[in-house]
């Protein structure tokens, strides 16, 4: 039991991302309201972004900017600096996520104009009546 607790605490960032991801996944699959599905997708994406950001972090690490003195002396210690690459990657992923959300919201607007509702069941009912 102690071992399990230690495992949970030592890797809590992974647990958080898995839990967030599952919440998002549930909303995407289980909810019938299209806006809720979209929110679920956003939570899902955010979970992955948090996962990436967390893997760059180091204990007691400083920001990845060299001071002039360090650079001249050549004493920068890589182990003391957090890894910026995952953060940079996630900037791109955030842009992608925002674009997808934007397209999805525009599509939702068209759906609402067409059917007057955003509940999937009601939309399908209206489609089958036509």
């Amino acid at each position: 039991m102690d071992g399990l607790m230690q495992e949970l605490v030592a890797r809590y960032n992974y647990w958080i991302y898995v839990i967030l991801m599952m919440i998002g996944f549930y909303a995407m699959i289980g909810k019938r309201n299209l806006v809720k599905k979209l929110l679920g997708m956003n939570i899902f994406q955010t979970a992955i972004i948090l996962f990436f950001v967390s893997i760059g972090v180091k204990n007691q690490g400083s920001i990845p900017i060299l001071s002039k003195k360090q650079a001249l002396e050549g004493v920068a210690d890589v182990a003391q600096v957090i890894n910026p690459l995952p953060h940079v990657l996630m900037l791109t992923a955030i842009v992608v996520g925002v674009s997808v959300t934007g397209v999805a919201l525009a599509v939702l607007q068209r759906i609402y104009k067409e059917y007057g509702t955003l509940e999937e069941d009601e939309i399908l009912e209206k489609i089958s009546k036509r």
């Binding site: 997708m41 899902f44 992923a93 999805a104 759906i111």
Partner: peptide
């Protein structure tokens, strides 16, 4: 099409996120 497109957005994003996670 808007509804089909929305469903595709949701599933397509899940696919892309899975890929991204694997790359992570």
């Amino acid at each position: 099409p808007p509804l089909a497109s929305f469903n595709y957005i949701i599933l397509g994003s899940v696919g892309a996120c899975f890929y991204l996670l694997g790359v992570g």
